[in-house]
């Protein structure tokens, strides 16, 4: 008679551990307020400084930035073409 409660307890334990995972999604705690609240700005406002029109930097003045951009764009178009050419038609 003493064995019955032990048997039942172990049965529940085994069944509990081996039961397949429920397919229904676990309820995730949803925030009550879905509106995103913007945090209150605590950083102090920077002291306003007079706006001065920026002068051309030496690399801008010499056109170094443009050359770099053109080189990168040319490289990008060629490497993108290589990627497109490597398409697999195996289905």
């Amino acid at each position: 008679m003493r064995a019955l409660p032990i048997f039942l307890f172990l049965c529940i334990l085994i069944l509990g551990c081996t039961a397949p995972e429920s397919t229904t999604e676990k309820a995730s705690p949803t925030p009550q307020n879905t509106h995103t609240q913007t945090p209150i700005q605590t950083t102090p406002k920077p002291v306003e400084t007079p706006i001065t029109t920026p002068l051309a930097t030496p690399s801008e003045d010499l056109g170094i930035d443009n050359i770099e951009k053109e080189l990168n764009e040319t490289e990008q178009m060629l490497s993108e073409l290589e990627t497109l050419e490597n398409v697999s038609f195996d289905i």
Partner: peptide, 23 residues
């Protein structure tokens, strides 16, 4: 596509070389 890309790339590089000569 490759022919077009190459022609464009060569034109670009021609321009870049001219810019480097200016520099």
């Amino acid at each position: 596509m490759r022919l077009v890309a190459y022609e464009n790339a060569i034109a670009q590089m021609d321009v870049i070389i001219a810019k480097l000569e200016e520099l």
